[in-house]
């Protein structure tokens, strides 16, 4: 049994708009394990992204507790969370979120400039197969390439965890598969704990563990005994 890296205890997240209270998370208990690739599945508004943001230290839970290794994230100040993100977490977003005024290499350097023990930006871009596109601006790259830059940026700091929110959501299936292959490669090569949010049920088949969300709660957790390679996934 691998070590636990994340543990949550009854976390809730309530958005109070004044007139109504919306429960994005309604009491979630979960455990994630070191080196695993976990897929979070569920319809829009089921609380996946909210959970991911809380795990990544981007957002605070309304109630409940979250531990990363043996550190309680829910007790951390904003400053502590910033350091936590800087040292441990890599993010990949649906819309890549590259800085348009920076080239691929510079977008990665944005991270390597502040991380404690980063790999060179060139190496990170080489890992995602963009060694020859390093000096291109985002506007000069395809969506798949941009997403791979985003992944390179996320892994350049050698994070312990990689959090991906709909990484293939804006991509066609061919480029989507390329991106998933990179994610799986990183996960296997570096043992980086990876959490992937997706709408796409097929992607679950590449995960070690699949967690289903419904109405702000975990409805089911499943462990895959057999995993497919991304190239075997069709959507």
């Amino acid at each position: 049994m691998p070590e636990i890296i994340f543990r949550t205890e009854n976390i809730t997240k309530v958005y109070d708009t004044g007139e109504v209270k919306v429960y994005a998370l309604a009491g979630v208990d979960l455990e994630l394990f070191k080196g695993e690739l976990t897929v979070l599945l569920g319809p829009s508004g089921s609380g996946k992204s909210t959970l991911l943001n809380i795990l990544g230290g981007l957002d605070h839970a309304t109630e409940g507790r979250v531990w990363f290794d043996n550190t309680e994230l829910t007790k951390m100040t904003d400053r502590g969370l910033t350091k936590y993100r800087r040292d441990h977490v890599g993010f990949v977003f649906q819309f890549y979120n590259l800085v348009p005024s920076l080239t691929a290499r510079e977008n990665v350097q944005l991270v390597t400039d502040v991380a404690a023990d980063p790999m060179p930006a060139d190496e990170a871009l080489g890992l995602v197969g963009l060694g020859d596109r390093m000096d291109h601006f985002p506007s000069e790259m395809s969506g798949g390439e941009q997403q791979r830059v985003a992944i390179a940026r996320a892994i350049a700091k050698r994070p312990q965890i990689l959090l991906c929110d709909e990484p293939t959501g804006a991509l066609d299936s061919t480029t989507g598969v390329q991106v998933l292959e990179v994610l799986r490669d990183i996960n296997e090569r570096f043992g980086t704990t990876t959490v992937v949010i997706t709408h796409n049920a097929e992607i679950q088949r590449m995960a070690h563990r699949v967690i289903f969300f419904q109405d702000g709660k975990i409805s089911e957790t499943r462990i895959n005994s057999e995993r497919l390679a991304p190239s075997e996934i069709v959507w």
Binding site: T82, K83, F95, N97, V99, L110
Partner: peptide, 16 residues
């Protein structure tokens, strides 16, 4: 806005 979010997500502090 989203670039600010990104900078923070990758570990830039509020002060930075």
């Amino acid at each position: 806005r989203s670039e600010i979010g990104l900078m923070k997500a990758i570990g830039y502090s509020n002060t930075e």
